[in-house]
Design a protein around this nucleic acid. Sequence first.
RNA 1: GGCCCCAUCUUCUAACGGUUAGGAAAUCGGGUUUUCAUCCCGGCAAUAGGAGUUCGAUUCUCCUUGGGGUCACCA
Length: 542
Amino acid sequence: MKDETKQRIIALLTEGRDISTRADIESRYPKRQLASGAEVMRVPPSPTGFVHIGTIYAGLVNERIAHQSDGMFLLRIEDTDKKREVEGSVNGIKEAFAHFGLDYDGGPDKDDGYGPYYQSQRGDMYLAYALELLHTGWAYPCFATSDELAENAKKQQAAKVRPGYYGQWALWRDKSDEEVVAALDAGRSFVLRFRSRGSHDKRIQFDDVFKGHMEVPENDLDVPLIKSDEWRLPTYHLAHIVDDYLMGTTKVFRSDEWLPSTALHIEMSQALGLQPFNYGHFAPISILDKNGGGKRKLSKRKDPEADVSFWIKAGYPVSGVHAYLLGLANSNFEDWYRANSDKSVLDFRLSLDKLAASRAPLLDMTKLENYTKDVIARLPQGAFNKEILAWADLHDKPLFDAMMADPEYTNKVLAIERDGDNPRKDVAKWSDAPEQFTYFFDPLVEPAQKNDDEKAACSAFLENYDHAADKDTWFENMKAAAESAGYCLDRKELKANPDKYRGGIVDFAGIIRLALTGKTRTPDLWSIMQIMGEDRVRARLS
RNA sequence: GGCCCCAUCUUCUAACGGUUAGGAAAUCGGGUUUUCAUCCCGGCAAUAGGAGUUCGAUUCUCCUUGGGGUCACCA
C-alpha cells in the first residue's frame, strides 16, 4: 500500500484530530514505581447490564493479590461497545464494588495518574498504536460488509474448513493499492484489521499462572483492531494490550473463555514490540441446571443469583460472601478460617498456586449460608442491630417502624441468645430478619387460632405461670402445667405407654411455642417470655 | 467441524508415584441442653471407562466417553 493511501486512511480514522505519537503517550505513563513483588491487578467489566457475581469473585481475587503484595488494584470500564452499553451500568459496578469492599486504587472517578479508566475516553491512545501497526505493515483496512463475511463463513462451512477471517479467507488482506483507493473513493466504511504473521500449523508456548505450561497453535486470525463505527474505538484485543501495557498490569487474570485468544494477544504484543503479559485463566463460577442439564455457566437470564443486586437485596453479609468466595479460590481457607476465628477473613493470605481453579465451581448457596450464618453470629451486637435495622428500613417498612417504636424492647429482641460461646445461627442473611423477629411485635402478629388441645395446654400453662420466676422455677412450673394437662414428663414412661398421654414435655412446649410465636423453631421460650413481658405472654396464650 | 481447557463422594475440594483416598457443606443417626437452636460424636458417600509406563498409578502417557470454551466490527 502506498504511503499516500495510508495517509488517507489515517485521516479518516482520526477525522483531523491530533493523535499523539506513541512515544508521547508512553512518556505520560511512566513505569510505576513499586516495591519488587508488588502486583498490579485489574478487573475489566463492561457496562452492559447488571453486575455478575463472577465479576465480584474475580474482583476479590485480583484485589487480594494486589493488596497483599502492596501493589495496585484497578477497575477498568470496558465500554468500547457503545451500542451494547446500558445506561446506569457503571454506577451499578461502582456500587457493587463498594458494597463488597473492593477498593480500587485506580478506576472510574479515581485517577491514579494512569487513567482515564473508561476505555471510551482513551480512544486516541488506541488509535496511536493502531496507526503504528498500519505503518509497520501489521494492520490493513478491510472493507468487507457483513454480508460478505457471512458468505465467507458459509463457503468455509461448505468446504469444511476452519471458519474465520484468516489467510486466503481474509478478503482484504492482499488487495492492491488500487482496490483500496477505489473503495476509499467510493466512501465505503472499513475496519482496521490486524495482519497476522502466524501459521495455524505452527505452535507457540506460554506459561499460564494457573494452568501451567501451554502449547497452542499460533494465531492466524486477522481480527479487527479498530471498528468502523463513528467513535473509531478499538476492539477488546487492542484495548487490552494498550491498556494493560500503559497501566502497568503485572498479571492478567481472566476467565477461561479468553484462553483461545491468548495466542493472538501474544502476537499483538510482539507486533508492538512489547513483552507478552503474564496470563492466568480460571474457570467461571457455574450453577447446576435446574432442568437437569448439568453444570453450566451462571447465566444472567435464568439465575437471579448471578446478579449481585440479588445478593445485596437478600442481605448476605459481605464478609460471609468473602469467606465463601475465598474458600472457592483456596481450599485451605476453610482450615484457616476455623483456626483464626478472631481475625478478619481478609487477613487470609490468598495463594496463587493453590488457585488452580481448573473446573468451573458450582455456586452453592447452602454452603454460602453456612458461612454467612457464622459470620452474623460472630458480629458484635451493635453491628448486628444496625444491619438488621438498615435492611428493614429498605425492605420491610412495617417491621422497621415497629422496631423503631420501642428501641429498648427491640434491643432486647435482637440480642436474644446471641451472647455466650454458642450464639444462635438463625440468621444467614438480613432478609431473614422478618422470619426471625416479626413475631415479637404485636401490630404485625395475627392472633393464633387454637384448637381445643392447644387451648387446654395454654390455659394450664398460664395457671402455673409466674413471670418473675427464674428459669429453673419457670421450667418446673411448665412441667407442672404439662402434667396437669395430661402430658408425660418421663420419656421412658411415655415410650412404654404412649396411649396414656397426650404427649411429652416436648409436645407441650411445642404447643406453647407455636401459640406464643407462630413458629416451631425459636429461641428459648423463657428468654422470649422475659423479653415479651407478662401482659403480652398472657394475651397470646389466652 | 477445527482448535483449546477440564474430569476424585450429591456439592466445593485435599492427597513429593507408595494414604484404611483426607477435610468441609448437605444428609442420616446418637449425645449435651427437661423446650428451639447452638455445640459434640458417629454413619453414608468418590478416583468416568480402557490400554500403556512402573515393583507400585488418583497422580505420568495415549485412546474413548462426558462437560465447557472458542472460531463476532461482544467483551
